[in-house]
Amino acid sequence: MSGMSKIVKTISGIAFPFITIYGLYIIAHGHLTPGGGFQGGAIVASGCAMILVSYGSIWTMNRVREKNLSILESLGAVCFILLALLGLGFGTVFFNNFLVGTNSLFGVVPAVGSGLANINTGGVIPLMNFAVGLKVIVGLFGIVLVMAYASRTKEGKK
């Protein structure tokens, strides 16, 4: 797929930072507001797919290497499983929330009931959100990028 017209490129370039910020906000506030790693990652991947469709797959493939995407996705998965295993090591069982109640990083226990939200709560849940978010962003964008690049080669052969 080659790129689209200049209007589409400009508008998607303007909209892309806002979509990315919104998706990262949903990932970072996963333990406070609706959403989480998967939802925010899907939104950021949607923004990246918009850039891909408007600028063309060759332009994007020259800037983002597919190998790096694979490495980042594996990094997200390894971080997720490592956090679960740390629950086994520091706590009691697999997926134990060992950080809650320690008053250190993300370890504050919030007051019961609805009140002002504190972002420094949640134990390992925000860290798992970051890991899953990285994995979903890179995985979904990698799928779309690889498929678009494959369709480009077919067009070139024609």
């Binding site: 959403g35 939104i43 991947a45 949607s46 469709v53 979904l140 369709s151």
Partner: peptide, 18 residues
Amino acid sequence: IAEAGVGACLTTAILVIA
């Protein structure tokens, strides 16, 4: 949120590319 992100955007992008 998940449905809007995956269903309305990514699926459409994949279908349009195909």
